[in-house]
Design a protein around this nucleic acid. Structure first.
Length: 190
DNA sequence: AAGCGATGCAACCGCCTCGTG
DNA sequence: GCACGAGGCGGTTGCATCGCT
């Protein structure tokens, strides 16, 4: 990002974009041997041409052994919605209540799935209210003065016709599975 | 079968907070 | 008390994939 550092003579090119399998392995290997630490120095010591931030993000969102991927269950979804209605966009706070889930994953899930349904519901309500304003206002008065987007629509979560059908049914396939990576990492350690 | 728009997710960016000297 | 660096967080973007025409 910023290139005006004092040690510009030794400035190393910073890699951006998708992580390669090799980089993943280096990071996993390094952390399993040395543990997490100061991310900037970790990135340097591990020989990764990445920023500390990038390493941290990759580790937390993807490489950590306890990260669960895909298959957000209906229970988790309800919890997300409940916590979001309580705290708003405090994704990391919400993520702490969903073991194995990352803030990024929850954020993405919210934006791509739930928010879509909210918009649909709002449109539906809008149309409805144009026909019958009284009904619409009475049904939304409970929460109409809230700032939180969760509270700007009235139907309960389970009233979305397609909602239950939109749960991901299978884990997203990555280029390589975490099991593969970890087994490779174990092999490297030998 | 090809083209194209929609969708989902990984990763980056920039701001804020906190710890340390 | 102040400056600076690192970490944390939420918002946004870019790209790969999917599904429809």
């Amino acid at each position: 990002m910023k290139k005006n550092s004092s040690n510009s003579s030794q400035e190393v090119e910073v890699r951006k974009g998708p992580w390669t399998m090799e980089e993943d392995l280096i990071l996993i290997n390094y952390i399993s041997n040395h543990g997490e630490g100061v991310w900037n120095s970790l990135a340097r010591s591990a020989g990764l041409k990445r920023t500390g931030k990038s390493c941290r993000l990759r580790w937390l969102n993807y490489l950590r052994p306890d990260v669960r991927r895909g298959n957000i269950t209906p229970e988790e979804q309800l919890l997300i919605m409940e916590l979001h209605s309580k705290w708003g966009n405090r994704w990391s706070k919400i993520a702490k209540h969903l073991p194995g889930r990352t803030d990024n994953e929850i954020k993405n899930y919210w934006r791509t799935r739930i928010q879509k349904h909210i918009k649909q519901a709002e449109n539906y309500n809008g149309k409805k209210s144009s026909v019958s304003t009284d009904q619409a206002t009475t049904s939304s008065t409970q929460t109409c003065n809230a700032i939180n987007p969760m509270e700007t629509y009235s139907p309960p979560y389970d009233s979305f016709p397609n909602f239950s059908g939109s749960f991901p049914t299978e884990a997203n396939e990555n280029m390589w599975s975490m099991e593969d990576l970890w087994s490779m990492q174990l092999l490297n350690n030998d």
